[in-house]
């Protein structure tokens, strides 16, 4: 999926060794809100300091919201639910048709069919690289759930699932995207993983949000518009 994490850098194609502009701008912007977010971070920090009770879990909340994580490696790298105001079947149908993924998955360059019903993905990775991912569908319950996993020939080892559930009160569909990925082997791989540890998580959240935009509004939201920054085009999104 789009949140690919390069864990075998020797197989990653070098496209551009300079840090790409988008990454640099994101860093700048992050600095800008740092001060204002300090207060929010304080609240979040307080929250995670609280101790979780021992004993069996009694909360009706999704597993990925548990404080007491199982081993870090078992934790999904990304898990997010969004309400989308469209019927379950319609959302499932679009997610089933992988040719539409590049419409809302920003980092997916292309998807082609591979052997035995598998699909081969070309995914943009940080710093101008690409990774290849070959996935097969593991489970497919029409209008409810699709899960997938990567095959050994992939650059990264990942699995994920998307679930569609009627939202209470006739509000549409809860769409939950859950992704896992195995930490890469080798020293170089770990370095890359460390550098971009948050990237797959963020990417998955963004892709789910874009899916919602596309399904509800018919287009993927963009702030593309003029600015006095010479590096920007009025037809390209501004980070």
């Amino acid at each position: 999926m789009a949140e690919a994490q390069p864990n075998q850098p020797e197989r990653i194609k070098e496209r551009d060794s300079s840090i790409d502009r988008a990454t640099a701008q994101k860093a700048l912007l992050a600095g800008g809100i740092a001060a204002a977010a300090a207060g929010a971070a304080f609240l979040l920090a307080r929250k995670s300091n609280a101790t979780a009770p021992d004993g069996p879990v009694i909360s009706d909340a999704p597993a990925w919201t548990l404080k007491k994580a199982t081993k870090q490696a078992d934790r999904p790298i990304a898990a997010k639910t969004l309400l989308i105001g469209r019927p379950r079947a319609e959302l499932y149908a679009v997610w089933k048709d992988y040719r539409r993924f590049p419409d809302f998955m920003e980092n997916v360059e292309g998807i082609e069919p591979a052997d035995e019903g598998a699909s081969r993905w070309t995914i943009k990775a940080p710093a101008g690289k690409t990774v290849t991912l070959v996935t097969r569908i593991r489970e497919d319950i029409p209008d409810r759930k699709i899960s997938w996993e990567s095959l050994p020939e992939s650059d990264i080892e990942t699995s994920g699932q998307v679930e569609f559930e009627d939202a209470p009160g006739g509000r549409g569909t809860f769409v939950s995207l859950v992704m896992s990925y195995a930490p890469p082997a080798g020293r170089a791989g770990q370095l890359v993983a460390k550098l971009f540890a948050r990237e797959p998580n963020i990417q998955a959240r963004h892709d789910l949000r874009r899916f919602k935009q596309l399904m509800e509004t018919g287009e993927v939201t963009t702030n593309a518009s003029p600015s006095a920054r010479p590096s920007e085009s009025p037809a390209q999104p501004r980070v």
Binding site: I33, A40, R210, V239
Partner: peptide
């Protein structure tokens, strides 16, 4: 509106405000 803020900037405001 839940869709007018692009995914990247929506993320930042979700951190600050609890929701995008």
């Amino acid at each position: 509106c839940d869709n007018s803020n692009p995914a990247e900037t929506a993320d930042m405001s979700e951190l600050l405000m609890g929701h995008p």
